Computed example of a mutant assay.
Amino acid sequence: MAELLLFQLYGPLASWGEPAVGEYRPSATHPGKSQIAGLLGAALGLTRDREEELAALAGGYGLAVRIDAEGELLRDYHTTQVPPARRGRTFTTRAEELAVDDLYTILSQRDYRVEAAWTCVLWATASAPYPLADLAEALRRPRFTLYLGRKSCPPALPLRPELIDSATLKDAFAGYPLDDRLGWLKRPERHRYFWEEPLPDGLASGFTAQEKLWVVPRRDRPGSRRRWQFATRDEHHAMA
């Protein structure tokens, strides 16, 4: 048995960034390591410049995700004005950015998931900076506003964090049903699951050989926030 923290994510819009080249900004079907680390950091009140602490959040916990509702894909043609990067100059608000004289425009196409929902599972590793109970309390009463990938995508329901003990990820997910308020969502006949290994002592995936699909590398482990650099980790996939 292992201690696990489960919580839900739902919003009218969500965007889980993938590696982007040029003007196209794709979204994954489910949140990854960097987005969950950012979510936890916001809940705990960590600002983006505290890279070491945010990296500790990413490295200190294992992650598994179940897609409860896939939603629909929405692509937005996006324009935004930004100031040029200057050494030694940091903008703390959007108003400060817009006050600069030499703004330039960035054009992009950005993908969003519409009316989708996910259940996430966390477990602590030996390097975890906080007990799971502290993370659960932070998710109940976050210090900063939480977002589902982008600032335009706040959650529409409380995250409903819950601590449980379980021998398998599959049993843990089964013991955390979809929120009653989301019963109207279009749900798949079989759920897709994603997790990383190694799993802690006392915890197995619980999925049969027939349910396991493949292992895919995903570049979502936070590196440098300033340079937008991410490292690769392996993500296990199953359908049940």
Score class of each variant (00 low, 15 high):
residue 2 A to R: 07
residue 10 Y to H: 14
residue 13 L to I: 03
residue 15 S to L: 08
residue 19 P to N: 07
residue 20 A to I: 01
residue 20 A to H: 01
residue 20 A to N: 01
residue 22 G to Y: 02
residue 23 E to K: 00
residue 26 P to H: 05
residue 26 P to Q: 08
residue 26 P to T: 06
residue 28 A to V: 05
residue 30 H to A: 13
residue 33 K to F: 07
residue 45 G to M: 10
residue 45 G to S: 10
residue 51 E to Q: 13
residue 56 A to P: 07
residue 60 G to H: 07
residue 60 G to T: 00
residue 65 V to T: 03
residue 67 I to L: 12
residue 69 A to E: 00
residue 70 E to Q: 07
residue 73 L to Q: 08
residue 74 L to Y: 02
residue 76 D to G: 02
residue 78 H to I: 00
residue 78 H to Q: 13
residue 79 T to N: 15
residue 80 T to M: 15
residue 82 V to Y: 10
residue 83 P to M: 02
residue 84 P to S: 00
residue 85 A to R: 13
residue 88 G to I: 06
residue 88 G to D: 14
residue 89 R to K: 14
residue 92 T to R: 14
residue 93 T to C: 11
residue 93 T to Q: 12
residue 95 A to E: 15
residue 95 A to F: 12
residue 98 L to M: 15
residue 101 D to G: 08
residue 102 D to Y: 03
residue 103 L to D: 07
residue 105 T to Y: 04
residue 108 S to F: 03
residue 110 R to A: 00
residue 111 D to F: 01
residue 112 Y to F: 14
residue 113 R to K: 11
residue 119 T to G: 10
residue 121 V to Q: 03
residue 122 L to W: 06
residue 123 W to P: 05
residue 125 T to V: 04
residue 133 A to T: 05
residue 134 D to H: 09
residue 139 L to N: 10
residue 141 R to D: 15
residue 141 R to P: 01
residue 146 L to A: 10
residue 146 L to T: 11
residue 148 L to K: 06
residue 150 R to Y: 07
residue 151 K to P: 04
residue 152 S to D: 14
residue 154 P to M: 06
residue 156 A to D: 15
residue 158 P to G: 11
residue 160 R to V: 09
residue 161 P to D: 07
residue 161 P to T: 06
residue 162 E to N: 02
residue 163 L to P: 00
residue 167 A to I: 00
residue 170 K to D: 03
residue 171 D to L: 08
residue 174 A to W: 06
residue 175 G to K: 10
residue 178 L to Q: 15
residue 179 D to F: 03
residue 181 R to C: 14
residue 184 W to D: 14
residue 193 Y to L: 13
residue 194 F to H: 09
residue 195 W to F: 13
residue 205 S to C: 13
residue 206 G to N: 08
residue 206 G to S: 14
residue 210 Q to F: 07
residue 211 E to N: 05
residue 212 K to I: 02
residue 212 K to E: 13
residue 214 W to I: 08
residue 214 W to H: 08
residue 215 V to I: 10
residue 216 V to H: 09
residue 224 S to H: 04
residue 224 S to L: 09
residue 225 R to W: 08
residue 229 Q to W: 02
residue 231 A to T: 08
residue 236 H to S: 04
